[in-house]
Design a protein around this nucleic acid. Structure first.
Lengths: 150, 150
DNA sequence: TCTTTATTAGGAAAGATTACGAATATGCTT
DNA sequence: AAGCATATTCGTAATCTTTCCTAATAAAGA
């Protein structure tokens, strides 16, 4: 299968936006942040922290793994990249009726969301070209009412 | 908020189905498996491995954590429960256009799925009652074509 | 250039999950 | 009911992923 690589121009635009965003938020534009963001922005491979670390390290041998984790988390907070999946701790659900989950990023609580009668969850997308689906997982992330500053 | 607890009768039905399923697959119905499955089946709290461990341990002080992890994984394979979220390793995506992911449970590869022009991803569900949504995550799990026994 | 202070490197610690060998108990057979 | 074969479990150690801590570093404004 052919994967379309992100255009360099596009990456440059994103890097520019990254700098803008940093300045907006009063965050320093360090070389580490730039390179780490670039590594994710120009990849189609959904890299792990470890693989970002390996790649950026080629040009920055002193980069620490902690910095990668810290930076990826802050880039996520800044809305510059998204984390695929959830937190590092597995949670289980014995209820197999089709439903979604709302995960509170503050307290970690997981809420069930059952679709209304007339609502369809299933998204009939061109997934079948990729493989055989065994399971669908729809998650919302946000702040739950308990954690909201009333 | 009031959470409806799963009916006991329902749990008993699930336990029966659990036994049937074990026998179908030639797996032994051990007390550990029963109790671990029961703990998840009768909970609305999306428990973690650790909390299942703690709970079942009250009546089985010798239960080992390894057994909990092993059993939860096999129950997932058997289709008796689902794992909320993904694997233990975080993956990141710099592409913020709305799209879904297909995760191959065999090789771990993550594929992007972009919706067609006329397709809507967003599911307008009663999520707003729970909190403020920051992000939506739609994942498909299955076996990708590369890993399928052609 | 100088100063302030956010950020990083490096290693150690914590947290979550898995691996391993000896002991146990299930399901089958008699 | 007893015995057997072997899948499963226990207990602990090891691994893997992520986070914490402190001195050193470097970005941004004066």
């Amino acid at each position: 299968m052919l994967l379309t690589l992100t255009e360099p121009a596009d990456v440059q635009m994103r890097l520019d936006y990254f700098e803008t965003r940093c300045k907006e938020l009063g965050l320093r534009v360090t070389r580490q942040r730039q390179e780490i963001f670039r590594a994710v922005a120009q990849s189609d491979k959904h890299p792990s922290a470890e693989s970002v670390f390996m790649q950026v390290r080629e040009n920055m041998p002193n980069l620490s793994l902690d910095t990668v984790y810290r930076t990826l988390a802050s880039l996520e907070d800044m809305g510059l990249l998204m984390r695929v999946g959830l937190s590092s701790k597995a949670r289980f659900d014995g209820d197999l009726r089709p439903h979604c989950h709302f995960v509170c990023t503050q307290c970690g609580e997981v809420y069930d969301i059952f679709p209304q009668e007339n609502e369809q969850i299933a998204c009939p997308l061109p997934v079948r070209n990729i493989g055989e689906i065994k399971q669908v997982n729809i998650q919302f992330k946000g702040i739950c009412k308990n954690c909201m500053p009333h």
